[in-house]
Design a protein around this nucleic acid. Sequence first.
DNA 1: GTCTATAGGTCGATAGAC
DNA 2: GTCTATCGACCTATAGAC
Lengths: 190, 190
Amino acid sequence: MKKETRKEQIIQISAKLFKDKGYAAVSMRDIAKELDIKAASLYNHIESKQDILKIIIISLAEEFTKRMTVIYSSNENNISKLHQIVALHVDIAYRNQYEMASLNNNWMHLENGITYYLELRNSYEDNFRAIINNGVQSGELINSNPEVTLFSMLSTLRHLYLWIPKMEEINPKELSDNLSKVLINGILNK
Amino acid sequence: MKKETRKEQIIQISAKLFKDKGYAAVSMRDIAKELDIKAASLYNHIESKQDILKIIIISLAEEFTKRMTVIYSSNENNISKLHQIVALHVDIAYRNQYEMASLNNNWMHLENGITYYLELRNSYEDNFRAIINNGVQSGELINSNPEVTLFSMLSTLRHLYLWIPKMEEINPKELSDNLSKVLINGILNK
DNA sequence: GTCTATAGGTCGATAGAC
DNA sequence: GTCTATCGACCTATAGAC
C-alpha cells in the first residue's frame, strides 16, 4: 500500500468538507485544521483553493466520460449497456463518495476549467441519451419520452453517494443488481 | 393579482441566487444589486441573511410534509398513492424551481431551524417509506429492497427542478404521467 | 515543510442622516 | 425606505524565518 502524500491528504479532506458545507463555505483554515497544520502550509502542496476543486472535479469527470465512451462503443445490446452504466455509477460512487458531491454541487465554482467540465458532462450525457434513443428505436425500450427516462436514471445515479452511507447492509454488487431491476425493468418493452 | 411586497421580492431573488451559486457564495450585496438598492436597505425588510434562507426552506418543507400526510392517510391503494406523490413533486417543482435547490443543497446552512427542518424531512420520508413497504406487503409492488426503491424515486423527484427548464415542450400533466410510468411500472408486480 | 505575520479584500450587520 | 459610512470578523494568499 503506497503511502498517501500530503497533497492527496489535502484533496481528500477537502472533498469531504466540500460535501458537508459546499466549496464556498469551506475556508483554507478549515482544511488545514483537519490536518493539524496552519493554512499557510497548505500552499507548499497546492497552488490555491481553486486548484483543489479543479483536481477533485476534473479527474472524476474524465473517468465518467472515458468509461461511458467504452460502454457506448461496445457491441452489446442497449439494455446491456444500461446495466453497465448502472454498474459504472455504483462503482464510482462507492469509491468517491465525497468527490461526487463536488461534481454535482460545486462545479459552478470552477474558474478555469468550467468549460472543459461542461464538455465532459455533455459528452457523457449525449452518449447516455444515444443509448436510450437506440433502445427505443430497436424496440428494446418502451416508447416514452426519452428525456424523462434519461433524467430519471441520471438523477438516481448521480445521487447514489447520498444513500450509500445509509445502506450499510447492502454491498456494491447487490446494489447494482437491485438498482438495475428498479430502473430498467420499468422501461423494458415486455 | 396582488402586488409583490419588497420582502417577497427579496425572498424570490435570493432563492434564484442561492440556486445558482449556493447560500454561502451569495452576499447581501449580490441580492441588493439585483433589486437596484444597497445592501443596508435589505435590513428594513428582513432580519438577516439566515432569515431569508429559513423562510425559503421551512415554508417549502412544511408544504411537502403536510401534503404527504394527506396522501398517506387517504383510503386509496398504495400504487395510487405513489402516483399522487409523483404529481405532488411535479406540482411543487414547477412552482418553486429556485426554492427546491435550497431545500436540497442549502439546508445545512440553517442555524436556527435545522432540527425542525430535519423533523419535517424525516416525517416525509417515513410516510413515503411506509407506503412502499405497505405496497410490498400487499403484493402491489415487487419484493425488491424497499430502501433502493425509496432512494431511486426520491432522487428523481427531488431533482425535477434541474430538468424542468430543459424540457420546455412538455407540460406538468404530461410530465407527471410520463414520470409515473417510468418510475412506477418498473416496480409493479405484474 | 511548517511556522508567524500580514497584506489587501470582502463579509454581515448597524448607526444615523434624509 | 433608502442612503453613506463604518465596524469587526473573516477570507485567500504571500513573504520570509526556521
